[in-house]
Simulated assay, not measured.
Amino acid sequence: MEREHRKPRKARCGLRHSIIKEFLAEFLGTFVLVLFGCGSVAQSVLSRGALGETFTINIGFTMGLMMAAYIAGGVSGAHVNPAVSLAMVILGKLKVVKFPVYVLAQLLGAFTGAAAVFGLYYDAFMDYTHGLLSVTGINATAHIFASYPARHLSVLNGFIDQVIGTGVLVLCILAIIDGKNIGAPRGMEPVAIGLIVMAIGVSMGLNCGYPVNPARDLGPRLFTAVAGWGMDVFSTAGYWWWIPVAGPMVGGIVGAVVYFLFIELHHAEPREERQQEEEEEEDEDDDDIKDNDEPLEK
Rank of each mutant, 00 (worst) to 15 (best):
E53P: 07
I193E: 10
I160H: 02
L65S: 13
K98I: 02
Y121F: 06
E282Y: 15
E189S: 12
S76N: 07
V97A: 15
L153V: 14
T56H: 11
E269Y: 07
F27V: 08
N207Q: 02
G205H: 08
E297L: 13
V89G: 09
M63T: 09
K93M: 09
Y122M: 09
H143Q: 08
V254A: 11
S154E: 03
G219S: 06
A25H: 01
F61H: 03
S147E: 02
I253P: 15
F111E: 12
G252I: 03
A146E: 04
H5W: 06
S76M: 08
E282C: 14
E272L: 10
D232Y: 01
V155H: 07
S18M: 09
L132R: 14
I176E: 12
L265S: 14
H266L: 14
E53K: 07
R9L: 05
Y121V: 03
V80A: 11
M126I: 15
L222W: 03
M249P: 10
N157D: 08
Q162F: 04
H79G: 05
S47Q: 10
A150I: 03
E282G: 15
Y121E: 09
H152N: 12
G29C: 02
V103R: 11
F125Q: 07
D288C: 14
I59T: 06
G238S: 03
A42W: 04
H267L: 15
E297Y: 07
M63A: 13
G37F: 00
V155R: 11
K7Y: 01
F111R: 06
S40Y: 00
T62Q: 09
F31G: 08
L261T: 02
A140W: 01
Y210V: 07
A68L: 05
P100C: 09
R186Y: 10
E53C: 06
P248F: 01
D232T: 08
A110Q: 01
G183I: 05
W242V: 15
V103E: 11
P220L: 15
I138C: 08
E26Q: 03
L218Y: 01
A256R: 02
